[in-house]
Design a protein around this nucleic acid. Sequence first.
RNA 1: GGUCCCAUAGUCCAGUGGCCUAGGACACGGCCCUUUCAAGGCUGUGACACGGGUUCGAAUCCCGUUGGGACCGCCA
Length: 538
Amino acid sequence: MSERLRGRIEDDDRGIGIPCILCLEKHGHEPVKEIRRRSVLRRKLRQSVEGSEGQRMTVDEENCSCQENQLPSICIAGYNTLMGEKRRCIAPEMISGRNSFMEKTRVRFAPSPTGALHIGGGHTALFNWLWARHTGGSFILRIEDTDMERSTKEFEDTIMSGLVWLGLDWDEGPDRGGDFGPYRQSERLHLYRKYAGQLVDEGLAYKEGDAVIFRVPQGKTLAFDDVVYGHIEMQSETLKDIVLMKSDGMPTYNYAVVVDDHCMAISHVIRGEDHISNTPKQLLLYDALRWERPVFAHLPMILGKDKKKLSKRHGATSIYEYRDMGYFPEAVFNFLGNLGWNAGDEKEIYTRDEAATLFDLARVTRKAAVFDMEKLNFINQEHLKRLDPDVRLSLVEPFWREEGLSVDAFDRRYLRDALTLMGGRGQTIRELAAYASYFLSFDVVRERYDGKDITEEQRGGLKEFFSALLSSPAWSTETLEAFTRNWADAKGIRIKDLAMPLRMAITGAKVSPGIFEVASLMGRDEVRKRLVGYDLLG
RNA sequence: GGUCCCAUAGUCCAGUGGCCUAGGACACGGCCCUUUCAAGGCUGUGACACGGGUUCGAAUCCCGUUGGGACCGCCA
C-alpha cells in the first residue's frame, strides 16, 4: 500500500481513515473514530462500492462541504481508485492492523476431520470459496486434526469429497500441496512449538506441566472490525489464560489458527459467528507474536426449525444425506448461498459462476438463518427444470437403478425425452425418478393400479375406442389428441372419460404429463401391451 | 452466572432518515389455463418485538426492556 495511505490509517487511533469523498454529512466530515456504529461503517462501505461500480462516486459532491480535503476513495470489495488505477482490494475501512490492500486474497476452509461435511461447514466453505473466486484469490483447504482422539483420515476424505460434490474446488490443500504447506495441522507441529517457545522466552507464556499457556494481560481492550458484524470489542479481563500447547504436544485451536493463518498468509478469516468470541483471544496472540491481523468476517449461523443450532435431531445434517435424498449440488449450493447473503436484487436462483461474480462479503447478513427444507425443495426444483436434458438423465439414472429398473434396456434419447416431458414435476431427483418410472416398466404401473374401477359397461366402449386409436395410421401427440377429441365429440362424451382410462392404463397414476404426449413417446407397441394388460383392447 | 452477538410475515431475503400505503421469494388460500397433476399467469392472507429519545420526519440513528443465539475445554 502507499505510504500516504498507511500514514493516514495509522494516524487514527483505530487504524482507520475515511476519505472525505465518502462524507455524507452536510456539516462536514466526522473523524472515523467517532463513527463506531456498524451501520455507518456499512453504509460507507456500500457507498464506496456503488461509486466504484458506476465509475464515479454516488456522493453528491456539490453538497460536500469539504471538497478540498477530498482524497480519492479507498475502497471495499470493489475497485481502488487511489492510485488512479483500478485494482481489486478489500476494505481498508474495515481493517484494523494488517492491511491486505494490495495482496492477493487468500481464504481458507479449515474443518476438523471428526465427522462428515455438514450443512454449517458447507455454508462456511461456500462463502470462503465465493470470496476467493469473486476476488480472483486462492481458496485453501486446511485440515485441523489436532484432536487426536476424534480425527480420522476417513472423515478427511469424506469432507473433501463433500466439497467436490458441492463444486467447491480448492487451490491449495493436503491432497494437492501448495507453497504454504503442509496443510494438515498434525504435520505443522514444529511451527507451533517454535512460536510457543518464543512466547515463553519472551515471558509472555509459561509452562504448566507439559502445557504451554499464554498469560492474558490485564486492562487491554481487544477490538476488531468485522466485515459483517462491524466493530466488536472485549476487555481482556474477561478472558482466562490461553492454553497454547496441550500436554499431549498438540496445539489448541485458538493458537493453531493464528499460527497457520499467519504462516499461510491468509488475508481473510471467514468463519461462523460462533467464533466471534474466540477472536479476541486470537487478537492477543497476533499482537504478542507481532503479526499483522487478517481481516475477519463472521458468518451468521444456520439454525434448525426450532431456532437452535443445527444438529442431528433436526434430521439430515450431512451434505451427503442431501445428495442421497435427491438434491443436487447446484441447488444445495444455491440454497446455502441464500442463507445470509443476497445480491441486492430480487434474483435468488443462480449458478455457481453467477454467484461468484455477484458475491460480496459486505452484503452478508447478521441474523442467524433457519434452515428451511421447503425452500430447498423449491430451489432444487427450479434447478431441475433448468437442467440440460442429458445431465438430468445422468442424475436420475442412479435412482432408477436403485429401484431395480433396467435403465440400459432403453434408448437414452427416449429416457431423456421422458424426463423432459416430466417438466417441473418433482422437487427432488428421487421424486422425479419415481414419477417417471412408468416409462421404464409396466410392472410399477400394475403395482399401483389394478384396473378394477372399470365397469364392464365402460369396458365395452373403451375397447372399441382403444382399438380404433391403436389402428390409426399416424402416431403423434397431435393425431392422438385429435382422434380422441373427434371420438368424444362423435359419441357425445367428455374427452376426460377417454383420457383418464388411458392415463391409468399406461402410467398407473391419476397424474402425469399430457397423456397424448406420454403415449406418443412411449410408442404404439408399448401402449398396446399395457392396454392389453388391463383387458382394454378388443 | 460472565462476555459477546442478533431482532422486518411461519421461513429466506430487500430496506442504510423522506421514494414505505414496508418490496420479492418459499409455504398457504383463491382464480385462470387444462384430459389429470405439475409448470405458468393473475391474485389473497401475513411482519418492522416493546418502550422511550433524537429529528420537521424513524423499519432505518440513540438508550432501555424483552426475546433469541453463541462462546466461556489441555474440542474445534
